[in-house]
Design a protein around this nucleic acid. Structure first.
Length: 282
DNA sequence: CCATGAACCTGGTCGC
DNA sequence: TGCGACCAGGTTCATG
């Protein structure tokens, strides 16, 4: 699944091509792809589908019309691109036709991706936490929010209603950079680690956006090009390889139901509060 | 409130 | 070469 940097990359690429154009028709190839509307809903009550902007909120691609929005979620394997030579590939789940006669392809091997039609961003904002690169994501907020819960830190960082945009890759990278074991409990983290985590999340996401995201296995964005952040991954996908910092073999374990990469020497497991006199290692 | 596992889908990889 | 088991970047829902 594309995470925040991958979705941002798609948005950046689509924006110049879409703004000022107009959607004339959406054809679902896989019937479930349109989650909460049918194609004709786009045009009810004099709505126009002039594209005023293309932005990102959480992991959604948002196409803005004068009085409504389309929100596209790529989930695990979704891709949005202009086809080469007008060819509609296998696993296309929707075709979006534009006034310019271009066609935008929603391609999704696993068919988890969905397109939503809303009046505005309210339904999405209600279900999502702050943007990690926005000003509401401060160290103070993170500290308070972590203290208020007693929850596995990895599960919490993956929870979009807590913080929007992180996924499995960038959570593992961020926790490694902060020296926090993914099995830690949120309210047991010392302030110094929380500061490092805050710093790590922002630095990693910014670097990943600059690199146009990460590619593992099958993610690609516009026209099949891949992101370059793969070469900057420090922990994710490196099972059995030595930790860049300390040399210990990187382990792959299961946390919050997800495959998780960890260096058990660099990443400390906090489970019972900072002042616990002693704790066993993981 | 929190954790876990299943469900939604297809395809790739690995071991035998 | 074939086949079954398991895994995958996400999210939601039921259950304990």
């Amino acid at each position: 699944m594309p995470e925040l940097p991958e979705v941002q990359t798609v948005v950046n690429g689509l924006k110049e091509d879409l703004v000022g154009d107009r959607i004339t028709c959406i054809t679902p190839i896989w019937e479930k792809v349109l989650s909460n509307f049918i194609p004709s809903d786009l045009f009810i009550k004099g709505r126009t589908t002039l594209i005023q902007d293309v932005t990102r909120r959480a992991k959604f691609i948002i196409i803005h019309f004068p009085s409504s929005i389309l929100a596209i979620h790529l989930r695990m394997t979704g891709k949005l691109f202009f086809p080469v030579a007008n060819h509609i590939p296998k696993h296309t789940t929707a075709v979006i036709k534009l006034d310019s006669r271009k066609k935008l392809i929603f391609h999704d091997t696993r068919k988890f991706g969905r397109i939503y039609l809303y009046n505005d961003l309210t339904p999405i904002n209600e279900r999502h936490g702050p943007e990690p690169l926005g000003k509401n994501f401060s160290v103070g907020w993170l500290h308070r929010a972590l203290q208020q819960r007693k929850r596995n830190i990895k599960a919490l960082l993956l929870d979009q209603s807590f913080l929007a945009g992180l996924g499995n890759i960038y959570v593992d990278e961020s926790l490694w950079a902060a020296g926090i074991h993914p099995g830690s409990i949120s309210n047991a983290l010392p302030a110094a680690r929380i500061s490092r985590l805050h710093e790590a999340v922002q630095a990693i996401l910014k670097a990943a956006i600059t690199a146009k995201g990460t590619t593992i296995i099958d993610f690609s964005y516009l026209n099949g090009q891949n992101g370059r952040y793969t070469s900057q991954l420090r922990i994710f996908g490196r099972k059995g390889q030595p930790c860049i910092t300390c040399g210990r073999d990187i382990e792959k374990i299961k946390v919050a139901g997800r495959g998780t990469y960890v260096c058990s020497r660099c990443q400390k497991k906090y489970t019972r509060g900072q002042s616990a006199p002693h704790q066993d290692r993981g």
